[in-house]
Design a protein around this nucleic acid. Structure first.
Lengths: 215, 215
DNA sequence: GTCTATATGAGGATAGAC
DNA sequence: GTCTATCCTCATATAGAC
């Protein structure tokens, strides 16, 4: 796992490529970087191993590329979630709880993405710095920014009370999602739904004690 | 990495054993479970590989044993930190900031312990459930409990305001340490001291808005 | 797509040294 | 009877050759 700046080779049929990417996401997520063999990725993709090396320079480039795609997909999904819950909330507390639950657990088809993030954490010290940096800005950074925008709007509308929406967003993440995230080992182990809801609800209440409009 | 209930063999010279344990902690922490070879652990310990297998049944048992010791050492160290800062604080806010900084960064000789915890996260889904459970109760659980006890005392003395010290302890951890923890990839990458202090200070201020005596 | 070169790992076995 | 050194087997990996 040394720094490698070479871009992925852009050859081969795109249909194969998406199959490879999907398979790599699944297998890397399930096995971790070292354990995931290129053979098993090829099998999962119903593709020859040679085809993988035809599309990607080596195993590390494959991980990095899949990670980038995955990061974007999750960021978009989370931005949607945030918009859906905070665009025009009737019961703000309820919406915050629902949003918190959604953000704190690997969502529907996104389990592999969370697993990939675990791989980044495990490999962080061996990954090129640009990779970890760009993951943070393109991933959690975008989510945080979107939260902050909504909090600013809600504050202007008198639904929240903060003149530092960035900080409020950070505190929301910390109070509402971080414990569930840690408790489930970053989504690796299941957290009972009732426990999750209890954690999130307690977090939202604390958040509203800090930033709620009427208190 | 399957469940293994056999206890480690209690043979061999204790001096060798501590060398092995230290080496395993270092190498597992530096390389991760899969990458760390028993050969390299033996080299680091200046011990024959055969000797390792004389003391431990297999590689997994070695990890588990080292993890347990490491967990206790860190928990004790963190309990001491908490006592030192919260036993009789003059300037409570300053003490909370100092404590937060100390808790949020791998301390003096404990870098390898944090690295080991990263290994647990990476391997969580492949580890026996008792292992992850006991890590939580013997590690973070103890820290949290000690925090809660002090918060209860401080509350009784009128220095804080909470009748749920457990929850206050959770919120302290979340607000003060969780972001630094995530930002540094669980201690894998260095976080500039000024950034750390900024994060912790902001967290403590929010904590005191929630639980401070006079507000 | 299969086949191969090369390397590296776990864990056991054997030898001898103190 | 514990430790060291060395070799062995078997499995599995990457990456390239055919």
């Amino acid at each position: 796992m040394t720094a490698a700046t070479t871009p992925p080779a852009r050859t081969g049929r795109p249909a194969k490529r998406v199959a490879i990417d999907r398979a790599a996401r699944v297998v890397f997520g399930r096995e971790g970087y070292i354990r995931a063999s290129v053979d098993s990725i090829a099998a999962e993709a119903h593709v020859s191993k040679r085809t993988i090396y035809n599309h990607y320079q080596d195993k590390e480039q494959l991980l990095l590329c899949v990670l980038k795609e995955s990061t974007h997909a999750v960021a978009e999904h989370q931005e949607e979630l945030i918009d859906r819950h905070l665009a025009s909330p009737v019961d703000l507390e309820a919406e915050l709880v629902a949003l918190g639950c959604a953000l704190a657990t690997p969502q529907s088809g996104f389990k592999e993405h969370f697993a990939l993030v675990r791989v980044i954490f495990a490999e962080a010290s061996r990954l090129p710095g640009e990779v970890t940096d760009s993951w943070r800005t393109e991933g959690p950074g975008r989510t945080q920014a979107r939260l902050a925008r909504h909090f600013a709007t809600l504050s202007a509308a008198g639904r929240l009370r903060t003149d530092e929406p960035q900080e409020a967003a950070a505190h929301f993440t910390q109070l509402v999602t971080s414990e569930a995230y840690e408790r489930s080992f970053h989504g690796a182990l299941p957290l009972p739904a009732d426990e999750l809801e209890a954690l999130v609800t307690a977090g939202v209440r604390a958040f509203l004690r800090l930033y709620g409009a009427r208190s």
